[in-house]
């Protein structure tokens, strides 16, 4: 059996205030897959994302990225392999301008000079944001901010992209452009979202998380057509999308 892109096995995690957010979570994503991760607020989706590149440390269980098992000695390599795109681009874009922000990751990996510049250009081109290089983050539109946030992790040439609510706060055109951008990236993706039509458009496979565990895993078309399953986990297709995908 080949190595999965990412695999979480029996992951438990409790916040210092006592909330048990992950309760023995198992999830496996194969290379090249694009998977939607759904679930109600508080299901532990974002917490899981923070585990996948070692920002939170699980109390028990294991995380694998490719052939590597996450441990403190390979943290830097794991963080290169798993690119995390945060929910609020303002949290992700902390440098004075776009080019410097995109350079932040690869510079931490030790790149400099012309090599670093090339990496920045490449990442911005991948999200069609080359013209934004010199702009300050607070002068970007919502859609531009989101694309640049993706570029900041693409610049590290990750193996897996984990996106937290990428379509939130976007206008319809920005959302459509984002779908196109993500479809154009030849890279494994785990997309955390509440936006079910977005999930359906983008992903073949969907996973529902609730109470810190995976409760459903299968084809996106089937899961999103299962009204009862969705209802049980506080999810629903927007009005007008009856019987998604069928």
């Amino acid at each position: 059996m080949t190595n999965p892109a990412i695999a979480a096995q029996g992951v438990w995690f409790t916040y210092p205030d006592g909330r048990e957010v992950l309760q023995g979570l198992d999830l496996r994503v194969e290379e090249g897959e694009r998977v939607a991760l759904l679930g109600p607020n508080g299901a532990g989706k974002t917490t899981l994302a923070l585990h996948l590149n070692g920002i939170h440390e699980a109390e028990s269980g294991a995380i694998h990225v490719g052939e590597l098992e996450l441990n403190p000695s390979n943290l830097m390599e794991i963080r290169r392999r798993v690119g995390l795109v945060f929910q609020d681009p303002d949290d992700q874009l902390f440098m004075p301008n776009v080019a410097e922000d995109v350079a932040f990751g690869p510079a931490n990996l030790g790149l400099s000079g012309a090599e670093l510049d090339a990496r920045v250009t490449e990442a911005l081109a991948a999200v069609e944001a080359g013209s934004l290089a010199d702009r300050a983050p607070h002068h970007l539109s919502g859609g531009e901010r989101r694309r640049v946030a993706i570029a900041t992790v693409l610049a590290m040439r990750p193996d897996v992209l984990v996106l937290d609510e990428p379509s939130s706060g976007l206008d319809p055109a920005g959302r459509r452009e984002l779908v196109a951008t993500l479809q154009g990236l030849n890279i494994t993706q785990l997309v955390i979202t509440h936006d079910l039509p977005f999930a359906l458009e983008l992903c073949k496979r969907a996973v529902i998380m609730d109470g810190g565990r995976v409760v459903a895993d299968g084809s996106a078309a089937e899961i999103l057509a299962n009204d009862e399953l969705l209802r049980n986990h506080r999810l629903e297709m927007p009005f007008g999308f009856n019987q998604a995908g069928s």
Partner: peptide, 20 residues
């Protein structure tokens, strides 16, 4: 705290990198 997490996720190890 979130910005710090976002920095860690991109390999921040305690010092701002030297940029060109």
């Amino acid at each position: 705290e979130r910005v710090h997490a976002a920095m860690l996720a991109r390999g921040y190890a305690g010092a701002m990198p030297e940029l060109n």
